[in-house]
Amino acid sequence: MSEAKVKQEGGEAAEIENRVIELCQQFPHGITDQVIQNEMPHIEAKQRAMCINRLLATGQLDLLRSGAGLLYRLKDPQTAGKMKGSDNQEKLVYQIIEDADNKGIWSRDIRYKSNLPLTEINKILKNLESKKLIKAVKSVAASKKKVYMLYNLQPDRSVTGGAWYSDQDFESEFVEVLNQQCFKFLQTKAEAARDSKQNPMIQRNSSFASSHEVWKYICELGISKVELSMEDIETILNTLIYDGKVEMTIIAAKEGTVGSVDGQMKLYRGVNPITQPAGLVRTPCGLCPVFDDCHEGGEISPSNCIYMTDWLDF
């Protein structure tokens, strides 16, 4: 009884597989399991899954993850060609790496996903690397770890350190320039609001700029070689808050408002310091590095203090 079924299934399986491939050709962006189900409603889920797995294992289909769920896509014949000669395990590992897109994946996670022993994985990775199918990229998050991704992909910024890193070097100057530019923008806006002499409410509201506004201004300035996101600009704006030059407020915004995220918008404006520098820092003692060693009669004392002398002579 089971034999017959298997034969039947086998024939059916091939047909299912072909149908799936046809569907994939029809929908090059990929199809979900649901689509296959709709197309062939009489097939049991178990059967469907088996066919799909076979197609995946033989390298005819790609597995992708999307917002809608799992997607099956026809594999690119080029890469499919390259895969010729690799065994299934390699294909599996390759697929896993491909799924990780440009964010890459640690070897440990590859092991977890593929259930293959580590030694096997390492062999495969070496192999794939030599075939120039994949590459290893150092992650800025943990300098000793590497992530693997497809050879021709541009690594995502979270791997390389984002806009602020260039070859693992933190771009202090660049950050500084952005910091200054953002501040200038906000300062100008605040001044304009003050000079407008409108009623206080309007003045205050017009002194604010959303992070989106600032982001747009910076992009238009064209000073960045890298593409900056609004979030990137927000991290810069935050440093201005810690510089005591800018303050932020969050307002509710309707979904879909330009620059809003999750129903909120961040607004920033330039502010003045509330006090002048303290009296203490107007004296050499306030800044003195040897203050604790200073006492009358000692090697370092008020009467022989060089800092005082310089300060008095100035």
Binding site: R282, P284, G286, L287, P289, V290, Y307
Partner: peptide, 14 residues
């Protein structure tokens, strides 16, 4: 040095 170089100078008096 007993009096190392000052990196920053005091702010002028008011």
């Amino acid at each position: 040095p007993l009096f190392p170089n000052l990196e920053y100078k005091p702010v002028p008096l008011q």
